[in-house]
């Protein structure tokens, strides 16, 4: 506690009151500030009385734990109001929220309430000489923004998922636990939950799907696109297309990916018979993994692919579908046997 300052981690719990990994990552980010600046580490959580989480947070290195006694919250507005008494009680120099939807919303609401500067999606924290270098992604992931915090004006942070490791637990370490009532939120009766739907993958917009099966001129015609649609369905994804394929009427224009189409960010992008023109690549910069299937080993698309499959798609696509269909039948048969 070099200058008596404190960093407060707001640790989320799930609806059942259990610690979440996102919450522990927020504690990990706060611990990095403690280690680099010599501050005290405090943690705040909202949980019903009798929760074992305060003890767990002590074991993970929190010196103080503010246990806000109240029902579990998973909503950002409710979380921001619930932890407010902990902010008053600890007067943190920095308040760290998790990457969960609730954590990010609560961070911004705290910022609005206090006027404190805020960095959301923080993925780098480098404390040194009483300052902190902070990084986060911007421009849709095309660049990293670097900031410097003077540690004088209070700051609110929301961390990026997976950027900070949960601090290790050591049994026997104990925190000073303070219990107080959680702050309450005006009742937002205005918003009521009606239900949840899992839309069929093929109905998803190309910007929404986790898996995209994209076809280009090499697919050769509507029959080929019929097979790609079938493959997309079996992979839980949806169909996308290059401009040439759209221009030839093989796929509707909302399915076009690229400079004049849509920018997509699926976890996996499978490109069948697409050469990889810069105007097409422009739309898949934020894709997670790119799998390219092309019979030309020199196709430019291979330059951006994580997996390059040099093959004739007219052989590969039916074989893939057969294999997935067979596996599915196998699974159904297995289920019938075990039932």
């Amino acid at each position: 506690m070099a200058d008596g300052k404190l960093v407060l981690a707001v640790v989320d719990c799930d609806a059942g009151g259990a610690l979440t990994n996102a919450g522990l990552e927020a504690l990990g980010a706060a611990a990095a500030l403690r280690d680099g600046l010599g501050w005290q580490l405090a943690a705040a959580l909202v949980a019903p009385s009798g929760s074992s989480v305060p003890v767990a947070l002590g074991e993970r290195g929190a010196a103080r734990v503010v246990h806000l006694d109240g029902p579990c919250v998973t909503d950002g507005a409710a979380l921001a109001d619930a932890v407010w008494p902990a902010v008053i009680a600890t007067e943190p120099a920095a308040t760290v929220f998790s990457a969960s939807a609730a954590g990010r919303e609560a961070a911004a609401r705290l910022a609005a309430r206090t006027g404190w500067d805020t960095v959301a999606g923080c993925n780098v924290l480098k404390p040194a000489n009483g300052e902190v270098r902070i990084g986060r992604a911007c421009l849709g992931g095309k660049a990293q923004l670097e900031l410097c915090w003077d540690t004088v004006a209070p700051l609110v942070l929301a961390v990026d998922a997976g950027a900070f490791a949960p601090p290790p637990a050591r049994t026997g370490r104990q925190a000073e636990v303070i219990s107080q009532a959680a702050g309450t939120t005006p009742d937002w009766a205005a918003v009521t939950h009606i239900g949840e739907t899992v839309p069929p993958p093929e109905a998803l917009d190309v910007t929404e799907a986790d898996v995209l099966v994209a076809g280009g001129a090499g697919v050769g015609g509507p029959e080929g696109f019929g097979l790609l649609t079938e493959l997309a369905r079996r992979l839980g994804g949806t169909l996308a297309a290059s401009r040439v394929a759209v221009d030839r009427g093989w796929a509707p224009h909302q399915r076009q990916v690229g400079q004049t189409g849509k920018s997509v960010s699926p976890k996996v992008y499978l490109a069948f018979g697409i050469s990889g023109a810069p105007q097409h690549i422009a739309g898949i910069r934020n894709a997670g993994k790119v799998v390219a299937i092309n019979q030309d080993p020199r196709a430019p698309i291979f330059g951006v692919a994580d997996l390059a499959v040099v093959a004739d798609l007219h052989e590969l696509v039916p074989a893939l579908i057969d294999r997935l269909a067979a596996a599915r039948q196998g699974a159904v048969a297995e289920k019938a046997v075990s039932a």
């Binding site: 919303e105 911004a108 609401r109 705290l110 910022a111 999606g121 421009l139």
Partner: peptide
Amino acid sequence: SDSGSGIVPAALAGM
């Protein structure tokens, strides 16, 4: 699309 921090909607709601 530039800064992309996503703070504004929730901060507005907070304000």
